[in-house]
Design a protein around this nucleic acid. Structure first.
Lengths: 183, 183
DNA sequence: GCCTTTAGATTACACTCATGATCTTAGAAG
DNA sequence: CTTCTAAGATCATGAGTGTAATCTAAAGGC
């Protein structure tokens, strides 16, 4: 099979980016091959380089896509609650829940990509922009950055200790601490 | 060359573990091959499986070694300062310094391995034990776990945004927040 | 001094992966 | 309707990697 309509091709490309953004967060950039990504949307690796310059380019788009989804989620939280002061505690509880810990693929890109990007400078601009946006949503200035650090650190530690009782203790401790930080 | 004395072999094995613990923290478990580790101590990969059952076994030992070094460092901090209440602020300042951010190989294993172990359950027991020890040093109970989350999160975010001005902002914001958390 | 043992070197095997050349076929333009 | 084009399939390539068999020479026990 081959040669779909332009609209279909554009839709396929978007599905690749979205699926990649989930796979990369869940399994890490290194653990996910180009073939894995293409298979996840029911295609073969052959057409990949017709749409993307390299795997690195896809990582960049997938990162931006993941942050974009996160910011949509945050905006929706503001809408669902009576003002930002009510939305922030709600974010803390969902962000540091066992469910969020166990679902990195649909979870926070700040946490999902931190481990990979701490080593590789290639995507830091896109990542740094996302971090600024997320911290800015929490609170302006230092407060937002510090609170985001606590959220991301706790989520990563909870994931890396999942299965041990410490994991839940970390989540609980950080939920309390995050609330205190923005008082 | 071959067949060194038993004492030499033991020393070589230890050098492999120590070098691996640095390389893994710096470049990630996946980016460092067995051959890389062996070359870093001036040997070839041939002898590796005479000393270790697998790469995974080395990762486990390297993790334990890294945490052990961290705890030695923390104990030394207690000795260098007038009591634990003075050592903790000193840790905050050194832990969240640009120098620590830029030297992951010799830095905190809680941060250095978090990204890798969040995905792979294989070494979580060793990691969880180290986390407990580090948090216990900071403060007992939830306080220590929350403060450690902030430290680790800020360090990882600062690394993943290194090169951008946000990186320094994160370090500064988290230094203030960490001190507040243990008040 | 001889013999067995074994740390480390050499080499090989079976995979995986990013990249890309080539082929196929159906959309798009005339 | 014909022709050109390009999305996606198939297959190839070259580099890297974990594991391990085999080789070697010196260590360590007798």
């Amino acid at each position: 099979m081959s040669r779909v309509s332009q609209a279909e091709a554009r839709a396929n490309r978007q599905r690749v980016v979205e699926s990649a953004s989930r796979l990369f967060r869940e399994n890490g950039v290194r653990h996910v091959s180009v073939a894995d990504v293409m298979q996840s949307v029911g295609m073969t690796q052959g057409g990949f380089y017709k749409q993307f310059a390299s795997k690195a380019a896809l990582v960049d788009e997938a990162t931006a896509e993941a942050f974009s989804g996160m910011l949509r989620h945050l905006a929706a939280l503001d809408g669902d609650h009576a003002g930002h002061d009510a939305a922030w505690p709600a974010l803390i509880d969902s962000y540091l829940s066992p469910e969020a810990r166990d679902d990195p693929g649909n979870g926070c890109p700040a946490a999902g990509f931190a481990g990979d990007f701490a080593r590789d400078p290639e995507w830091r601009d896109t990542y740094a922009a996302g971090i600024r946006d997320m911290a800015g949503w929490i609170a302006p200035g230092d407060t937002g950055l510090a609170a985001l650090s606590t959220l991301v650190g706790a989520l990563l530690l909870a994931r890396a200790t999942a299965g041990s009782p410490v994991s839940e203790e970390i989540l609980r401790a950080a939920r309390k601490a995050a609330a205190r930080l923005t008082e």
